[in-house]
Simulated assay, not measured.
Amino acid sequence: MTRPAPSAPRVSRARERILLTADRLFYEEGIHAVGIQRIVAESQVTRVTLYKHFPSKDALISAYLDRRADHDHRQVDGIIDAHRDAPRRALDELATVLTRDDFGATQRGCPFINASAEFTGSHPARVHAREIRRWVTERLEELLRQVEHADPRRTAEQLMMLRTGAIVSGALDANGHLTDDFLDCWNMLVEAGLSRRAEARTA
């Protein structure tokens, strides 16, 4: 007799409400400014229920940033997978998606930078920020290596710095040309390395 396949674990609706509420409040108002009682009230759960899923505020902060990181992982990996045989196209698409999604959705700045700015040392917020930024930078470096860029490591880090600066500019500056300026700088960094590689081959 064949045993039925195990069912997927049930998603706790209370946990999802808590996490969605924390995500909204932490991003819009800041982590220190939002207390546990506020999250309990707005997610319509008891303190016992909240602490059942998140034993401490730091655990909730980690879950909030994990959720944000999961979105970034799916977004970046999805683009790379869609252009598996066209890394240059993947680089272009990553830049375009950043302007379409991030600039509009991060009007209060990067959630990882904002969170890490509220803490010091080895707090989970700073660890998460370093991890996701390093991961994105490594994905960019891999694509640059695939297109035989002259300096993939350095340029990947520069692209990440450019993205960070653009998100901050989008949150603080009234720059009506932000998207065009960002795409121009992104392409110049990529193309400069491709040109140097081509020159080295013909020298």
Rank of each mutant, 00 (worst) to 15 (best):
R88I: 06
T99K: 06
P55G: 13
P87K: 11
D72E: 15
S62V: 11
F182D: 01
A105I: 12
E148M: 07
P152V: 02
L91R: 04
Y64F: 15
P152S: 03
R145P: 01
R89V: 13
E142Y: 10
I36G: 02
I36V: 13
V190T: 13
K57P: 06
N187A: 12
K52N: 11
L140A: 06
Q146W: 11
A63T: 05
T179N: 12
D70C: 03
A129V: 09
T137L: 00
T137P: 00
A171G: 03
R154G: 15
V76H: 06
R130A: 14
R17D: 07
W186M: 03
R89A: 14
E142R: 13
I39W: 09
H53I: 05
V11H: 12
R84N: 13
R84G: 04
T46V: 04
A171T: 05
Y64M: 09
R201M: 09
L172T: 14
N187H: 14
D101F: 10
P124L: 08
A156Y: 09
R100E: 15
V136C: 00
S195G: 00
A174R: 13
A22N: 03
P124Q: 02
R67A: 09
M161I: 07
M1D: 10
Q158M: 14
R17W: 04
L144F: 02
E29I: 08
R139N: 05
R153P: 02
A125D: 09
V48N: 05
I36E: 08
I132V: 15
I132N: 11
C185T: 13
I167P: 02
N114Q: 14
E142S: 14
A156N: 07
V40L: 02
H32G: 07
I167Q: 13
E138K: 04
L178W: 10
E157T: 11
L98H: 15
V127K: 14
Y51E: 01
E141H: 06
L144T: 05
F182W: 02
S7E: 11
V34G: 00
